[in-house]
Amino acid sequence: MLKCEGLRKSYSGRPVLQEIGFELPAGAWALQGPNGCGKSTLLRLLAGAEEPDAEPPRVCRRLQLPNRMEP
Rank of each mutant, 00 (worst) to 15 (best):
S10F: 06
P52T: 03
A54Y: 06
G6P: 04
V16E: 10
K3P: 12
N35T: 07
C37V: 15
E5Y: 12
G48T: 00
E19V: 02
S40R: 07
E19G: 10
E70Y: 08
K9E: 04
R58L: 11
L17D: 02
E51A: 15
P57D: 09
L7D: 07
Q18K: 11
F22S: 03
A26P: 11
S10A: 13
E55I: 06
A49N: 13
S12M: 12
K39V: 00
L42G: 00
Y11I: 10
D53F: 01
L43K: 00
P52N: 05
N35E: 13
P25C: 06
A47I: 04
M1A: 08
T41G: 07
G36V: 06
P71Q: 09
I20D: 07
G6N: 12
A49V: 11
E55L: 10
Q64W: 08
C37P: 08
N35I: 01
A28L: 14
E19F: 01
E70W: 05
A30F: 10
G33T: 02
L65Y: 06
Q18T: 13
E51D: 13
N35M: 09
N67C: 09
E50A: 10
A49Y: 12
W29L: 04
W29Q: 10
A26E: 15
L63A: 04
N35P: 15
I20G: 02
I20V: 15
L65Q: 10
P34C: 02
G48R: 06
G13C: 05
L2P: 05
P71V: 11
G13E: 04
C37I: 15
G21C: 05
A54T: 05
G33S: 12
G36N: 04
A28W: 13
C4R: 00
R61T: 07
L65E: 01
S12F: 14
W29G: 08
K39Q: 10
Q64L: 15
R62I: 00
P71S: 12
A49C: 08
L63G: 07
G38V: 05
L17G: 01
A26Q: 15
Q32P: 02
E5S: 14
S40H: 03
R68V: 13
L65D: 04
G6S: 11
R58D: 13
L46R: 01
L45N: 00
G13Y: 10
P34D: 11
F22E: 02
L45V: 09
L2H: 09
A28H: 14
C60S: 06
V16G: 06
P52C: 05
E55H: 11
C37K: 06
K3Q: 13
W29N: 04
C4E: 03
